[in-house]
């Protein structure tokens, strides 16, 4: 499978690749294959009835739906943030720029208790949100809020470098040909950032559908309403329902895997396109 395409004088290919494949198999492939083995102990009919049970579907709907909404909101604000960071200068910009990665470095459990404290009805922000009728904790909204926090750095960090690399001379040229600012944005800048938007979106989406630590504190955990899929897996596990747990996990795993493959494909496609132009 792993055949060298080009001759090179550099040594260490077989050693490095051999070790990589060995380590990937040991740490990732073998443990993950357990999911398939365990799930294969039940019949397909049973598998199907587990993953299409109303409660399971509701959990998938919440996990996928909230991840989608959160990633979508993040795309919108992420573009603005990346734009501001890439193009403008303002006091404290360096600190702001550094803090974008905070959700990525902060342990999810800490994020969970902090967000719950912040957005519950007696919390610092929650008290205002509740007054205007937004139930910001123990609800769909709460899940979305947590996922926005988790997903933000993935989106900003994929868009920002692309914005920085757009050649300003093209914008100058367009402007001298009479294009307005909005026109330049939609005709030149937007198409250039589009692949990174897709990548950022799917990275954030893949990361947030499986999120557990930060969400479990702020979701209401009501079956069929505010129960996320990872929690359902744990619930099944605690009822000694191993095959149920692995079946639900397997579906999530396959979705993540497809998303990742698509992301890598999108990146490959984007780099090819740039390489050609």
């Amino acid at each position: 499978m792993f055949l060298l395409k080009q001759k090179t004088t550099l040594p260490g290919f077989h050693l490095a690749l051999g070790y990589t494949v060995f380590y990937v198999s040991l740490i990732v492939l073998i443990p993950l294959s357990m999911l398939f083995i365990k799930t294969s102990t039940i019949s397909f009919a049973d598998f199907w009835s587990i993953v299409t049970a109303p409660r399971t579907l509701a959990a998938y709907r919440l996990s996928f739906g909230a991840a989608f909404i959160a990633s979508f909101i993040n795309i919108f604000f992420g573009v603005i943030i990346a734009w501001v960071l890439a193009r403008y200068s303002f006091p404290g910009k360096k600190i702001v720029d550094a803090l974008i990665d905070f959700p990525f470095a902060l342990p999810t459990a800490v994020a969970g208790i902090a967000l719950t404290t912040l957005y519950s009805s007696n919390g610092l922000l929650g008290q205002f949100l509740y007054k205007i009728g937004i139930q910001s904790a123990y609800s769909w909204t709460g899940v979305v809020l947590a996922l926005i926090f988790i997903g933000l750095p993935f989106i900003v960090r994929t868009i920002e470098p692309v914005l920085q690399e757009i050649d300003p001379e093209i914008e100058d040229a367009a402007s001298s040909l009479g294009a307005g600012r909005l026109q330049i944005f939609f005709r030149i800048i937007f198409p250039a950032v589009l692949p990174s938007l897709v990548t950022g979106f799917s990275l954030a989406f893949a990361r947030t559908i499986g999120e557990y630590g930060s969400v479990v504190f702020i979701a209401g955990n009501m079956p069929g309403k505010t129960e996320i899929a990872p929690l359902l897996i744990i619930t099944k596990l605690e009822q000694y329902d191993y095959s149920g747990a692995t079946a639900i996990a397997l579906v999530m795993l396959i979705v993540s895997f497809i998303l990742l493959a698509l992301t890598n494909l999108a990146q490959w496609w984007a780099s090819k396109r740039i390489g050609m132009s």
Partner: peptide
């Protein structure tokens, strides 16, 4: 009438 179903008794008390 239950709005939050925590996974354990302690979680409910905290809520």
């Amino acid at each position: 009438n239950v709005q939050i179903l925590d996974s354990g008794a302690r979680g409910s008390t905290t809520t």
